[in-house]
Each structure stands twice: as structure tokens, then as C-alpha cells.
């Protein structure tokens, strides 16, 4: 059933502007959800996104879930004293009046246990859980290995 759902989701692949959609949840807005092609399904995928908080209350991203992966987790790439490591992030702060990026070389979602390899042009939903605001689902677009992020310049919001 899960596979069927995923297949249905992947087949609904929409335009390239999918990652440029903005989804709002109270004072939070979430946009630019994107991922990269994976080489097979045995290696983890990645999830990047932008979150901004226009409210007066601090919030935090505490978890992610998706039908595309059995074990999605939040991690942070840390380069300290010339060594890169990737500790598990229990939560990612989204302070009042600020925005936070999950982006290459920093915070990211790690999608372990992929149900299928991620291919360029695929899309899948990711549900973000916030400490205070609750849950919101965004569409994530799979970009090429060399992509540095979605090109939303002409998305016209």
C-alpha cells in the first residue's frame, strides 16, 4: 500500500516550479523544498527547505516524515577543526522574526530507508513537525546531483 501511494505521488510529478510554492502555517512559511537524485535506494536522500517565522514567538522544527523514506531524520553538517561530522539534530530553532535554511553544508533532512531511488523530476511530500505551530506538508522536488537549489526567480509569487 505504501509503495502504491508513493508510486501515485511520484507519478503526479508537476512543473519545475513545485519547489517554489510557499506553504504557510500560522506565522510560519515554508518554501523551496528540494532534494537531490540518489544513486540507488540503498543510500540516504537529502531534504532541504527554507522556513521563515514572521511571528513574535520562537518555534522549532522537531521532526520530518515522508512516504518516500522509512527513517527520515534531521541532521547538521558541522565542520570543526578541519573535520566534518554530521550529528543528529534533535530540533532546529526557528526564532521569532527570523528565517532558517536547511541547505547544503548545514542543517538538512536525511532520508534513510528510501522506498525507491530518487530520480530527477520526481516529487514527494514531506511533513514538517514544529514544536508549537504543529504540522505542515510541502512538496519536495528532486533536482540533479549538481543542483544548488531550485531556481525560483521566475516563479512569480
Amino acid at each position: 500500500m505504501k509503495h502504491l501511494l508513493l508510486a501515485a505521488t511520484l507519478s503526479l510529478t508537476a512543473s519545475a516550479a513545485l519547489a517554489c510554492e510557499t506553504v504557510t502555517l500560522g506565522d510560519l512559511s515554508v518554501e523551496h523544498g528540494w532534494s537531490k537524485v540518489t544513486i540507488g535506494a540503498g543510500r540516504p536522500g537529502v531534504f532541504y527547505v527554507s522556513i521563515s517565522n514572521v511571528g513574535a514567538t520562537d518555534d522549532a522544527l522537531v521532526g520530518i516524515s515522508t512516504p518516500a523514506a522509512g527513517m527520515p531524520m534531521l541532521h547538521e553538517t558541522v565542520v570543526k577543526d578541519g573535520v566534518a561530522s554530521m550529528p543528529h539534530a534533535m530540533s532546529i530553532p526557528v526564532p521569532a522574526g527570523q528565517s532558517v535554511q536547511l541547505s547544503p553544508g548545514g542543517y538538512h533532512g536525511m532520508l534513510m530507508g528510501l522506498t525507491a531511488a530518487l530520480k530527477e523530476g520526481d516529487s514527494f511530500p514531506v511533513t514538517l513537525s514544529f514544536e508549537k505551530a504543529g504540522e505542515v506538508t510541502v512538496n519536495v522536488e528532486v533536482l540533479s546531483l549538481r543542483a544548488e537549489g531550485p531556481d525560483c526567480a521566475d516563479a512569480g509569487q
Binding site: 540516504p44 578541519g82 573535520v83 566534518a84 554530521m86 543528529h88 534513510m112
Partner: peptide, 22 residues
């Protein structure tokens, strides 16, 4: 250069690798 295996339940197979990324 430096590398080291780090046990991490939140990584595939329960470990990740710390390494010099240059």
C-alpha cells in the same frame, strides 16, 4: 588527514563517518 567512525543510531547501519572534507 583525519577520519573516524562515529556511532550514531540516527544514521544508516548505526554509524556515520567524521572526516576532513577538503
Amino acid at each position: 588527514i583525519f577520519y573516524e567512525r562515529e556511532n550514531d543510531a540516527a544514521s544508516p547501519d548505526g554509524y556515520s563517518m567524521a572526516h576532513s572534507p577538503g
